[in-house]
Design a protein around this nucleic acid. Sequence first.
DNA 1: TTGTACGCGTTATCAG
DNA 2: CTGATAACGCGTACAA
Lengths: 339, 339
Amino acid sequence: MAGEDAVGEGAAPPRIVEIARLAGVSPITVSRALRQPEKVAEAKRRRILEIVERTGYATNPHARALRSGQSNIVAAFVSNLQSEQFCLAVQGCGEVLEPQGYQLMIGQTSYSYAKETTMIQSLREMRPAAVMFTGVIEIEENRRALRALGIPIMETWAYPRDPIDMLVGFSNIDSGRLAAEHFAARGHRRVAFIGRRSGRGALRLTGFREGARAAGLDIVAELSVDGVSSMVDGRRALGDLLSRNAQIEAVFCANDLLATGALLEARRLGMRLPDDIAILGFGHNDIAEELPPGLTTIGIDSRDLGRQAGSMILQRMRGGMPSEPIRAVELTLARRGSS
Amino acid sequence: MAGEDAVGEGAAPPRIVEIARLAGVSPITVSRALRQPEKVAEAKRRRILEIVERTGYATNPHARALRSGQSNIVAAFVSNLQSEQFCLAVQGCGEVLEPQGYQLMIGQTSYSYAKETTMIQSLREMRPAAVMFTGVIEIEENRRALRALGIPIMETWAYPRDPIDMLVGFSNIDSGRLAAEHFAARGHRRVAFIGRRSGRGALRLTGFREGARAAGLDIVAELSVDGVSSMVDGRRALGDLLSRNAQIEAVFCANDLLATGALLEARRLGMRLPDDIAILGFGHNDIAEELPPGLTTIGIDSRDLGRQAGSMILQRMRGGMPSEPIRAVELTLARRGSS
DNA sequence: TTGTACGCGTTATCAG
DNA sequence: CTGATAACGCGTACAA
């Protein structure tokens, strides 16, 4: 309790030389006992590990990184920490990497190109072993800067032609097509879109347009939403939509938050789903399943995406190259009561 | 594309000696120009910073941490990454620390004591500059281990008598009392509780019992929920409650996820809120505001909690000690249609 | 299988 | 205000 100096002033942790001294071996043997156990004689190794255990010795990661040039930190950037799906992907990635001794450092880019640039500068300083994004990097300058880091880079959540290094994604354009096809199959003709006009939202809209054209649907409105979209935006957008055009039969929202807002607004106005209006979201959000009458939503298995990304990163960090540096995960439509 | 070795093999970043050489000074002067600019002559400093800028030099954090004993990593552990409020707190903390050059490393404890212990071991290895938890550490052994790290430790989200080092919290017991008082004020008598029987849930129940006794309410049921509680648990719990006792007038749910589930179930059963049943949650979740008729919820400003925690941590890392190492944030009740 | 010698890149210390 | 020197703790390279 009452230490020499002050509250919180702990004893200096033991160093490798101390363990070596206690075990009667040289420091390098301790190092080997921990990193390459098979290269140390059984008896010695056991004695060393016992002492390590007893003293609570832990390798200093800074010294290690400095000497070996290998950090055990993997940086993960989410576009938005509030997103259940992004967090799931990061968790999946962590599940794979942490048992292997890597630590995930999580940052947020907030869908902002400015932040993305700042973040890349901070990566230069941090020198992680690898980087993962829940998204793709679009600015060519940032792509170059990332490539120049010389470490494995994982992009996700989209399906560009030329990822920086590795990719586990899906086609946002396909998701829009899928939405249009679903509406067509359900017999809707006059449809609308609510979403952002940049990034993934734009791609989903592109696909939706293509699918609509192919299926002979009329896109009677495209509402754009700025910044990080929220439920309130969804409510408002649906309100706008209905006030200007009473003939809309179905709405595709670029994400489930918007769709949830739209669904709630529709219910508030006393509309019956899907008869008065059908609503389709994107993202497989938990909440989507629960809200009566249940939001139909297109999406992927985000945790699995994260796991795949993690194992590919791991492979690259170990010097290998995944046979498939670009992988696609499957899009599924979970049909509920709203469509 | 086709580098010497493999994709992603970037050029080695410049080191401090290189900058020193270009500027015609010694390495230590470069170091000072970056860390203690006021100690370097104006002209020299400008020249050095210009070169740093031009070359994209970034200090190697491992070498720095090794030599100075000061890491720029702050570890933040959330009980559950899926929690909007915990993430908000972590974001708030990051907002304060990141501009000062610190990096947040985020981990998850999953409400599991086993994981908590593992995590503390990994802290020994990581050697962060400080640690923050969205929660308090209860196991005495873990508390000791954390104290032994000799770094600033921040606990949050509760209000124990003896935090390990620093605390920004609120009384979970008070939140339960507040709930009971609210029900009493609204004229309800027969009330119930849904929540976990450990950790914060238990405290909220304790306060709820006290408040109920003081106000003369009858707690006619206490339903316990295991593990990480979900909306489905809330639905089921409300169903259970109603099937065994039709006389319940109001339910306090230990968190908004449970409350949301309960609210949805009540609506599904055609009950009117708050007349047939009043529902009160905890956590100020976004969704709570939107779901008709709007969930009444008790809670705090989590982002602000995080910011306060961040600035206290900062103060401690700089060698100071906050005048108030234990702070309380205010609990508020946001009244909506459900009560 | 084990050990010796050295260096990773930076900053503390102290002298100028 | 600036620089020389050494040291942080570990792991690589090589030798035994």
